[in-house]
Design a binder for these strands. Structure first.
Length: 160
DNA sequence: GGCCCCCCTG
DNA sequence: CAGGGGGGCC
């Protein structure tokens, strides 16, 4: 009934927040979007955004994991996610297109962990089983990081 | 019934 | 990214 309360600015901010949290609940979202007049629809939309972010995240990582296997990599110790690798570049382009923030190390760690999970699952042909990604998603929920306070700063949001 | 999440689609 | 459907968990 309020129409589009969430702006493109909120979208950019949400993407940046994704670097710290992949699974924010509605309570957390309300804290970090203090300027938003929450209601059922707005909450659902914001939650949906993160769901879409996750889908892109996992989709890219799965694709990268398959490429690594195709290239002959056998050990997960050889799977390193750093700023100069292709996976990192793709993800950064999607969530931090204009390099508005410095990507936290915790995100690289999370992406690397997910990469190893997908790599092992595919290597062990777990991907032939139904809903084989469920266990990976569960593991990834342990990689949440603390969201910086400046996300709550209205002035900062308008500067991105 | 309400809230979340994933899946698939456009 | 938004819509709609399905399933799980209070």
């Amino acid at each position: 009934m309020y129409g589009a309360v969430l702006t493109s600015l909120h979208l950019r901010k949400a993407k940046l927040m994704f670097f710290y949290t992949r699974y924010p609940n509605s309570a957390v979202l309300k804290v970090y979007f203090p300027d938003v007049r929450f209601n059922k629809l707005i909450t659902a939309q914001l939650v949906k955004w993160f769901s879409n972010f996750r889908e892109f995240f996992y989709q890219q990582i799965e694709k990268y994991a398959r490429q690594c296997l195709a290239e002959g990599i056998r050990n997960t110790d050889d799977l390193i996610v750093t700023p100069n690798c292709e996976l990192y570049r793709i993800l950064n382009l999607h969530y931090n297109r204009s390099n508005q923030i410095n990507v936290p190390i915790s995100f690289s760690k999370a992406a690397q962990a997910a990469l190893k999970e997908f790599f092992l699952a595919i290597q062990q042909q777990k991907d032939l089983e139904s809903s084989w990604k469920k266990s990976i998603y569960k593991v990834m929920q342990r990689f949440e990081d603390q969201i910086p306070d400046f996300f709550k700063n209205d002035h900062w949001m308008h500067s991105i």
